[in-house]
Structures are given as C-alpha cells and as structure tokens.
C-alpha cells in the first residue's frame, strides 16, 4: 500500500486559516489501512482543527467527507454536491488523491494534510516499512524475494557493503541489512549460485529516469 503520515497540525492550520469553509476529504483505501487519512483520521483532524482555530479566535467551517478512492475520478465526482460550498479542499489522501481532486476542480485550492511516504507493507500492528520503489523492472526473482533497491540504504544491486553488521545496516541497528536477508533467503532456497552472477547496471528508464510514467491498457482505455 501507499503509506502516509499526518502533517504537523501547525502546518495544516497555516494552509486552511485564510478560508471560511473547508472541505476535508479522506480516502477509504491505503491511507485508511495505515491510519493516516481514513474516516476516523478525518474526524480527528476536523475536531483538532476546530479547537486549535477556536483558540486563535478563528472560526472555519469544516465539512468532512471520505471517498471510496480518492485517486479515481469516478469516485471524486461524489464531491460535486459539496465542492461549491467550500472555499478550499484539505485532502488526507496520498499525493495521487490530492492531484486527482486538484485536476477535477480547477478553481479550488487543494492542500495536502498528510505527507505521502512510501510503498510499504505492514510488519506488525502499527508498523509499516518500505518494500518497493516502483523501479519498473522487478528484480525480486533474482534476489530471493527481497528488494535491494527499496531495502538497501545504498541501493546496492551487488551487496552487501562493508558496513553490514550482525544482520543490521550501518545506518541504523534497527534497519535490517537487505543483503543479509537476501543471502539468508538464497541459502534457505538452495539458490546461492544466484549470488555469484553480477546484477548488471540498471536501466533507470523504467523507473524515475524517464519522466512521468504511464500505463495504457488498450482494451480498457476509453
């Protein structure tokens, strides 16, 4: 999923304070799962903003609404009946959701209430960790199902570096050394010969190296 974290309240207040009516929009997808911008967080933020602004002698009307999926124009249409009553939109979705709203309602200022962080998985209750950087050319088959691009601090495709210590990364003892994990997995799978083969220099065009990426499915596209 895409993970996110709420921005500091102070920063959000600075965005919405100039407006009288704000539409606060959550999303039922990823940000709900990582407890950053679902219905509940929308409620918490609305309540917190009310109280914080009240103390500044300001009264901003905040309307709450949570969409099924904020990155999908079809669902964003749901805001049509609410948008006219708002001077600005505050979005608790990831950056994709914020931009979908901005693209749909050209004359409404849209502010992000969360910082979109990374594509991650849940390690345990309440803990999410980065697992994928969307490089566009998946290596996981060669690396025992552990991504060196997302999980090695130096993105080494032929690691580990000299800083790997007792299974931890040199940058932080709480961060696993991705190459230790890869090696352990290759051993468990009986695939240690995979390691000997050098992974060649990456073609970053499938990743961030080639400008904004797009997928077009001819059979589905209208």
């Amino acid at each position: 999923m895409i993970t996110a974290e709420r921005k500091p309240l102070e920063e959000i207040i600075a965005c919405v304070a100039p407006f009288r009516k704000v539409l606060l929009v959550g999303c039922n997808e990823c940000v709900t799962v990582c407890a950053a911008g679902g219905r509940k967080e929308v409620g918490l933020l609305a309540s917190g903003l009310h109280m914080a602004l009240l103390q500044q002698g300001k009264s901003v009307e905040i309307r709450e609404h949570t969409l099924e999926r904020q990155c999908d124009p079809e669902y964003v249409e749901e805001l049509n009946s609410l948008i006219d009553g708002a001077d600005a939109v505050l979005s608790m979705a990831c950056g994709c959701g914020v931009q979908t709203i901005a693209g749909r309602y050209k004359d409404k200022p849209v502010f992000p209430a969360v910082n979109t962080k990374f594509m991650g998985a849940s390690e345990r209750q309440g803990v999410w960790a980065e697992r994928c950087q969307g490089c566009g050319n998946c290596l996981l088959g060669q690396t025992g199902g552990i991504c060196p691009i997302a999980r090695c601090a130096k993105r080494l495709m032929n690691g580990p570096c000299g800083g790997s210590t007792k299974g931890s990364c040199e940058i932080d003892p709480d961060t696993d050394c991705a190459w230790q994990l890869i090696w352990d997995r290759l051993k468990a799978l009986g695939l240690t010969e995979n390691y000997v083969e050098m992974i060649p220099a990456k073609d970053w065009r499938t990743s961030i190296g080639n400008g904004p990426r797009k997928i077009i499915r001819e059979d589905l596209a209208e």
Binding site: K40, G43, L44, S47, G48, H50, M51
Partner: peptide, 11 residues
C-alpha cells in the same frame, strides 16, 4: 474508547 471519543469530549 476511540481517540475520536477523547478528542470530541474536549471539543
């Protein structure tokens, strides 16, 4: 008791 209950109580 949800976080929302606690915050709303103050509100």
């Amino acid at each position: 008791v949800d976080a929302l209950h606690l915050v709303k109580a103050f509100e």
